[in-house]
Design a protein around this nucleic acid. Structure first.
Lengths: 217, 217
DNA sequence: TTAAAATCCAAACAACGTTCGGAAAACAAA
DNA sequence: TTTGTTTTCCGAACGTTGTTTGGATTTTAA
């Protein structure tokens, strides 16, 4: 029972309508077509009216990005953990790429800007702790990778070293799938090739290399 | 002996001054601060005057991006080919990342938009051929990677399969270094960690995995 | 010397994000 | 119901953007 007053329900509905309109515009006409006036027109508002619900266009975009990260994480979490670790990590990585291919505009929106930081000042220590907690937030796609790598270590398939722990390996894995996804939706957008094979083989090579993990660089 | 007429020399000089001013603005105040009026002010022109030299702001940016690709390629080509293949490929990848870290604004400018296509229509065949030739252009950073992989194959260190040739392996390698670079200048911008170690270890794992290259996915 | 071409800019245009001031509506208290 | 207050909404405007236009000035060519 939310027990919301009617005015609050109206507010929430409009709030969501703005986001939905913004998503539609991005999906249909691209990010460049996203303007406050265009959003307003879709939901029969004036541009000025939107500022009752969002402080700025940037805030609308940030909200959409947060939801995008959740959708990305959901897609990756959908991979069955019953799979053997090798297939599990592979399919998780492929899910990351699949999201990018299916939602290139949102993906680029999410990953071409540095993440927004809270306005207040903070010490480097605090900042680092905040970033680390955001990285491992429950809605973070990275967390899925992180847990997957952790599982591989627990199962004894992936070796660890004092200077190369879960975090370091997971960041490497993230970089790999991110690069595959990013290049495919930008530079290789119109390029024709068997991306699926490249992705699988590249992921495989990285995985097998991880299982070795000798000592010297 | 260029044998340019004085007017042509003047034209070239202004042409270059515009690009230089644009580069400075991007470097000092970021991409968002780049405007036609800001460029004009730096070189004592009016905004309208710039259109004698560039058809649009987009054309200025494209030119800067092309030069950026050349600089990126030069940085990678600076790695000594006397190095053993393993170290050569590693340092080439690290050079790619180093460029991104030293020039994050330019790097993002170069790789967050799909490459500009010539306006004329063309068949899918022609388009594919054009993209492939651009990918392997002499000023393409990818070409350095491509040649490096090719060398590894020639030396018998990297195995090839009918369905996984130089191009496919090189695209995978590109994706890997691109992801490492991209994440570092965007999402992990303020994050503190031993990036150098992660990069070396990730590249190492991928390389070692490549040398195995079994048959099934 | 004269016609043509190249060079440059003030002014304006359309579109943008955002702010301001107030109108209209919804709500709360009496 | 009648107040007074708060919420909701918008027309108009501000400042900035990329770009176009028309004409002025200079350079070049004949």
């Amino acid at each position: 029972m939310p027990a919301l007053k009617p005015s609050e329900r109206r507010y929430q509905r409009t709030h969501e309508a703005i986001l939905e309109a913004a998503r539609q515009i991005i999906h249909e006409d691209g990010v460049n077509a996203l303007s406050m006036r265009a959003i307003a027109q879709r939901i029969d508002y004036s541009a000025a009216g939107l500022y009752e619900y969002f402080a700025s266009k940037e805030e609308i975009i940030e909200t959409i990005c947060r939801q995008g990260h959740r959708r990305l994480k959901d897609g990756m979490a959908r991979v069955s953990t019953d799979l053997p670790i090798r297939e599990y990590l592979r399919d998780t990585g492929l899910a990351y790429i699949e999201f990018a291919v299916q939602n290139p505009d949102f993906f680029l929106l999410m990953f071409t800007k540095a993440p927004p930081l809270p306005p207040g000042e903070m010490s480097p220590k605090e900042l680092q702790a905040l970033l680390e907690s955001e990285l491992l937030d429950e809605n973070s796609a990275f967390l899925v990778l992180f847990n997957g790598i952790q599982r591989g270590i627990n199962e004894g398939v992936l070796p660890v070293r004092p200077d190369l722990g879960v975090m370091e390996i997971a960041l490497g894995a993230w970089s790999l799938v991110h690069g595959l996804a990013m290049l495919r939706v930008t530079f290789l957008q119109s390029f024709q090739t068997d991306f699926a094979r490249i992705e699988r083989e590249t992921l495989r090579a990285f995985y097998e290399g991880l299982t070795l993990n000798r000592d010297r660089n």
